[in-house]
Write a protein that binds this DNA or RNA. Sequence first.
DNA 1: AGGGACATGTAATTAGTTACATGATTGT
DNA 2: ACAATCATGTAACTAATTACATGTCCCT
Lengths: 201, 201
Amino acid sequence: MASKTTYKNKAGNLSMDVKTLCLGVLYQGEASGYEIKKAFEEGPFSHFQDASFGSIYPALGRLSSEGLVDCTQMAQEKRPDKKVYKLTSKGNNALITSILVPPAPDKFTSDFFFVLYFAELLPVAQVTLLIDQRIAFYKNILERMSECDITSVTAGRQLCHGLGLTVYQSSLEYLQKHRDSFLQKLPSQNITSTTSNRHAS
Amino acid sequence: MASKTTYKNKAGNLSMDVKTLCLGVLYQGEASGYEIKKAFEEGPFSHFQDASFGSIYPALGRLSSEGLVDCTQMAQEKRPDKKVYKLTSKGNNALITSILVPPAPDKFTSDFFFVLYFAELLPVAQVTLLIDQRIAFYKNILERMSECDITSVTAGRQLCHGLGLTVYQSSLEYLQKHRDSFLQKLPSQNITSTTSNRHAS
DNA sequence: AGGGACATGTAATTAGTTACATGATTGT
DNA sequence: ACAATCATGTAACTAATTACATGTCCCT
């Protein structure tokens, strides 16, 4: 049972692969590969999952040959043809099976945090820019998220949305609150490069 | 100029690789490969970066041959020998150069969120467990983080710590606040598998 | 006698990204 | 004329993970 190699994470669980991700998007309604990509870029999945064309199209091909999705070629006016994929009941069950296993731990990788960690090594102007861009980023995301209507979506989706909002909102507030005092704490005479031997106080 | 292939992200920036990550850990003080691993597992980097032995050891080897770190073999009593790596001034500059480029966007991948998104497909007991484990996870991490003393560390590190605390704290509060009402909103008669055709309201 | 922490390293395998290839239509 | 959006797909490439290999000491 269980498909061929089936990847295991540290906890021994199966990881969500692009195939499962596509099933999830398709559970919400039929879509083309291009539209699935958009769900990961701008849609509600964009905050916690990602996939590129190079992985989506082969995944849809495999799902199709496994009978988990149906594919319909659609001719469009003034647009290229598209292949619309639809979840089959077998695909529906496959999605349920996938989310039934305990989820793998979150993976968060942030170069922003890494750079911020070593802020004392950078010119103050650069750190200021870094933080201001991050503040702008949070503001932008919060604006877009509060615009979308979640009154008629599932409870799970609402909770995800609310959790996301909370995280972004509190991050924004924290940064805004500590920005000035943080920048003042940084050495005004930053070492941008070359010789530097002032490790101790 | 610029090392051989140099990877580029969507924004055209160079990504932090394991080599740079090691330089960052080593900036804080000399360490062995094993100790660097621990920094990503339990240390302050554990919240936003990760690396495994299979990438750390080869990275240290390359850093050594490039003159960015010095390696000293250390014999230990009742412990295997260890190789202690130390940042050279060339390595110090390499770290600065790396953090000078605009950081790549964060990558957050969460199977928890994905599963939560489809909570209506799961038995209520399973969703309850999922949320309670997540609450326990946040509590645990918050406890460990508040234990550690950050009074004598750099401003950047303090800000990272504070931002992390805020995110975990607000996530915990949100989940605790909405847990009960969310679980009540779920259909008590969950579909665990097989036939199910109630897509519309 | 078995598991866990300490300690270093290599090899196989992987899923995924980036870049390429192609082409119509619409807006600037 | 050029970039952007729509649309699908393949090939090359990569960094990194997992699993393997080896060994000591300590605790239960």
